[in-house]
Design a protein around this nucleic acid. Structure first.
Lengths: 208, 208
DNA sequence: GCTGATCCTGACCGATTGGTCAAATCAAGT
DNA sequence: ACTTGATTTGACCAATCGGTCAGGATCAGC
């Protein structure tokens, strides 16, 4: 058995060249999938944006579904991290504000991923219902219990924990998903404004 | 000249039958466009859902673009109404809370329209940038000025008015656009919870 | 500079796309 | 019943879709 690789089997040291091409494909695919959704995206579009022929794209990924699945998989890996980062031992208001800031930073740094996710949900979550059920939901239940505990201790204002989480998702992802609208209605970089506003809003809401 | 009709020209009393068929088409098209976006939607899907053949659909609407444009037009007519409904002479906090409630009700009653709009924005707003620039933006500028006036009078807490509006849009539309996620993470009808939460949140934020 | 594996593409395939058209059907006067 | 216009559809079209395939480039190791 050869030395352990990140790929579990069959591939003896995946060439850097291959990884680079795969990245170029995924980069291009993210652009198009985030904009037009799965069904509205064509392989020709992705291939052209990636600067290669369609058969070559299919040499790296067996099908359109595979490209999309890979993007979603990579995305969902990172999606739960901020929620997991809430420290049950920390100061409640500050912990939630930290979560808000991390989520907002993710929307700011990865807007296409946010739009990809949004489009998937709008389409009825056909490809990620498993993730939502097995990955997100248990973590939400856990976090809701934690928040309820904080409220019971009087360390947090009495709010509906589920609605609190929904509101954080809505407010942070909005800046990525509706960027086109924001840019037209109020042009200019509003990232700082958004951060300050959310800080103010949740501090007022949550301070007991 | 015949008696005035709702259609300004050429059509002498559009038959009720035609309007009924058009409605059936638009109803089916809204389902599909809201779910899959413009490019991801096919005329065959719409025709099948509307219970007719594709050529017959094209007898009522000259093209796929026309169906989509009609849906967007009808939607945008209603979209600005709640924002226009803010009364400059009213009590500031209550006026904004009323706007929040009306917007939430719209998302609750017309979730497909909300998703259609969201998908259009995510796709870069190619077909509604005119509406955003000519319809929404001036109204936003107006409302922002109104809110700034209220803040200057000390009748509203000092918040960024632009961010305030964005937050209202995000929080209300979220319940329609991300319904699939909400249903999985926290099943059951949460409409009442959402209303109460938003009321609490904005009251705390805006009360001077 | 030969060889074998990897990488890449033009040409092509059947299915599906938005849209057309001629002909069939329907509804309503007369 | 007959005519007229509005409605509906099967058959069809060129373009595009996801995907295949045979063969040409390109590269590393020798």
């Amino acid at each position: 058995m050869p030395a352990a690789e990140d790929q579990p089997a069959a591939s003896p040291a995946r060439s850097a060249r291959r990884q680079q091409t795969e990245s170029a494909i995924l980069e291009a695919a993210l652009d198009v999938f985030a904009m037009h959704g799965f069904r509205g995206t064509t392989l020709d579009q992705i291939a052209e944006r990636a600067g290669m022929s369609k058969p070559n794209l299919l040499y790296y990924f067996p099908s359109k579904e595979d490209v999309h699945a890979r993007l979603l998989g990579d995305l969902l890996d990172h999606w739960l991290a901020p929620l997991r980062g809430i420290d049950p031992g920390g100061e409640p208001v500050e912990e939630i504000l930290r979560y808000v800031r991390r989520k907002l930073a993710m929307s700011h740094d990865y807007p296409r991923e946010s739009r990809l996710f949004a489009g998937e949900i709008i389409a009825g979550a056909p490809r990620i219902s498993g993730f939502l059920t097995d990955g997100l939901r248990p973590l939400v239940d856990e976090t809701v219990a934690l928040i309820q505990g904080w409220i019971a201790q009087g360390r947090l204002a009495a709010v509906d924990p589920v609605q609190l989480l929904f509101s954080i998702w809505a407010l942070t992802q909005h800046h990525a998903d509706f960027a086109a609208q924001i840019e037209i209605v109020a042009p200019g970089d509003r990232a700082g404004d958004a951060g300050a506003f959310l800080d103010q809003m949740y501090r007022r809401l949550l301070t007991p």
